[in-house]
Amino acid sequence: MNRVRAAIVILAFLIAFSVFGHISIKTTTKNLLHGLQQLEQSVLVKDYTAASRQVTALMEQCQRDEELLTIFVKRDLYNTLWISLVGLQAYLSDQYFNDMLMELARTKASVDALHQQYFSLA
């Protein structure tokens, strides 16, 4: 009977851990996507000062969530996302407008991949 109780406790812990992971990943990816959307708006109106601030904020957010994210997803994915965010800084000018949009799309794809890895069954 003690083992059965232990099994129930472990199962309850795993469910709680999964729910925590679900909420954490969903919140993080939602915030990142929202931030990237705002960044895209700034780039489209060519407000590179605001865009630079937004990139910095996104990087800080990503760094803050690093420990939490790497509990639930592969470190490779996190690193890919981080490198994409860092790379955005280099394209904040009129000269690299198209490249910036491409990099933004790539970063959004990285966030989606992170989301997929955690939530996808297939």
């Binding site: 059965v4 099994a7 129930i8 795993l14």
Partner: peptide, 12 residues
Amino acid sequence: VPVLLIVSLEIL
């Protein structure tokens, strides 16, 4: 997580 899940399911 999978190991603990299998253990608890096996016991139950």
